[in-house]
Design a protein around this nucleic acid. Structure first.
Length: 476
RNA sequence: GGCCCCAUCGUCUAUCGGUUAGGACACGAGCUUUUCAAGCUCGGAAGCGGAGUUCGAUUCUCCGUGGGGUCACCA
């Protein structure tokens, strides 16, 4: 177990092989939250040791995704830090240094075989229904490594390992999990198995957060830590995130979305952080809507789940609405403006609560605007037949509209409540439907819409009367 | 297949041996100021199966079942 007095250092170490998806971001979020919670350091390190799979623009995409969510790193490739560089491709000297230490100890050796030879070893093992282990073919005498062959780790002791994981508890694996894996590839770049251990050591990483696909290779890491006489960091295994069917782990291949797609769809960063945080963790009380700050304060490794969870976009939508509701009116207005640029600002201000009620994500405004709000700025087309409430007559509708018009002309329209007080008594006497349906329909031209009092309040005296008069002309 | 991990309402989860098994999403019903939306109230809904340990198991142990991960010159 590591020194608990030591300053917490965590890292997020993605490979630049494509877009960021929920799984990666969740890992980053937990590492970040744990560092923040402990006034520690959060490092962004790019594991770009596979030049063949590297995707142009990935690093920028990773950074943009993290920044969107407010997951800011204290050290990283763009801002540097006390352990620079933060690109593994620029840290080759470090790996070479430790490789030489292992060679000197007789714990690393050049792989003398061709790929074809290894492939046939593998095939033979398969035919005999045995696990293929390179160490069964380990040469008796090691040659001198010239840098063009893969450098392999010589597992010092083949044994079963048992270790502590902060989330899973005691874990173990059989000796088959241990093999002479490659430390440095023939192209001179290190493998993940080797590089992350050296970097974590040099950068003083205290806690490794990563998903459970790494459990199987942990004995390899442990064996290497021992060979290098390194005290391993605290291991924190995160639960998998399952796809829609709940059967497969969510990966890029089976529908995991680019995290920035959520941003493009209008989701709020705080809602996304809240959602991601709860995908494998919860504060233990009954809170479900939390700000990033509250999440950091409550975050605890002991409350990270063991079992995987399905990603439920329905819940994300609900969460986004909750976060959206909590924003200030100023922010809300600004966001709404972006979607309704041709609406006058004073109208928008009065319309704001009604809009907020109807959406979970700001971008939904684009979809409902034409049917639900358009009539506020474009006078509605009124079908005179629809103005009639149930089996009443046009004359009755006209009488009620006349009276409502009279009330509006002299009444106080300064709030929805006041409009209600103004018209409601009359409607209650005459029949709510008889009065309110013609009113609401005259103002909106819609069979379904916001309630009539809010309508009058939003449209204002002048416009409301104008619309009522227009209908009255048609009625008589 | 070998090795390993996981297992509570449809979904996400709480419970650290004793609870009417709690909450949230979704769903259903009702309420409210015509309709729609929102909101509020109520409701249905769960411990994978089998042994054991124990006065008592959702909780601890084992077996089974189901699901997942991993067996690369990928991370």
């Amino acid at each position: 177990m590591s020194d608990t007095n030591k300053k917490v250092v965590t890292r997020f170490a993605p490979s630049p092989t494509g877009f960021m998806h929920v799984g990666g971001v969740r890992t980053a979020l937990y590492a970040w939250a744990w560092a923040k919670k402990n006034d520690g350091t959060f490092i962004l390190r790019i594991e770009d040791t596979d030049k063949a799979r590297e995707v142009e623009g990935s690093i920028a995409h990773i950074m943009e995704s993290l920044k969107w969510l407010g997951i800011e790193w204290d050290q990283g490739p763009d801002i540097g830090g006390s352990h620079a560089p933060y690109l593994q491709s620029e840290r080759l000297e470090s790996y070479k240094k430790y490789a030489n230490i292992l060679i000197e100890k007789g714990l690393a050796y050049p792989d003398p075989y061709t790929k074809e030879e290894i492939e046939s070893f593998r095939k033979n093992a398969e035919d005999e229904k045995k696990v293929f282990l390179f160490r069964d073919h380990r040469p008796e005498k090691f040659g001198v490594w010239n840098g063009t062959q893969p450098l392999r780790f010589k597992v010092p002791v083949v044994k079963s390992y048992t270790w502590m994981d902060e989330v899973r508890g005691e874990l173990s694996a059989g000796p088959e999990a241990l093999d002479d894996f490659i430390l440095i590839k023939s192209d001179g770049y290190p493998t993940y198995n080797f590089a992350h251990i050296i970097d974590d050591l040099e950068m003083g990483v205290t806690h490794i957060m990563r998903a459970d696909e790494f459990i199987a290779s942990t004995p390899k890491f442990l064996s290497l830590y021992e060979a290098l006489e390194i005290i391993p960091p605290v291991l924190v295994t995160l639960p998998p995130i399952l796809g829609k069917e709940g059967t497969k782990k969510l990966g890029k291949r089976d529908g995991a979305k680019d995290i920035l797609e959520y941003r493009n769809d209008g989701f709020l960063a705080d809602a996304m952080v809240n959602f991601l945080a709860f995908l494998g963790w919860n504060p233990g009380d009954e809170r479900d809507v939390m700000t990033p700050l509250e999440i950091i304060e409550s975050f605890d490794i002991s409350r990270i789940h063991k079992s995987g969870a399905m990603l439920d976009e329905e819940k994300l939508l609900w969460l986004n609405k909750e976060h959206l509701k909590r924003q200030s009116d100023e922010v809300k207005l600004n966001e709404v403006k972006k979607h309704l640029p041709d609406y006058p600002e004073d109208l928008l201000k009065r319309l704001l609560p009604s809009i907020i009620d109807r959406i979970s994500v700001y971008s939904q405004i684009d979809h409902i605007e034409s049917t639900e709000f358009r009539f506020f700025i474009d006078s509605p087309e009124v079908d005179i037949e629809k103005i009639i409430w149930k089996d009443e007559t046009k004359d009755q509708a006209a009488i009620h509209l006349e009276e409502v018009k009279r009330l509006i002309e002299s009444g106080d329209l300064s709030s929805v409540e006041n409009v209600n007080k103004l018209i409601m008594p009359y409607a209650e006497v005459q029949g709510k439907g008889s009065v309110l349906w013609p009113l609401r329909y005259s103002l909106s031209g819609q069979e379904k819409s916001i309630d009539p009092f809010t309508l009058v309040y939003i449209l204002g005296k002048e416009e409301s009367i104008k619309r009522i008069e227009k209908v009255l002309e048609k009625l008589t």
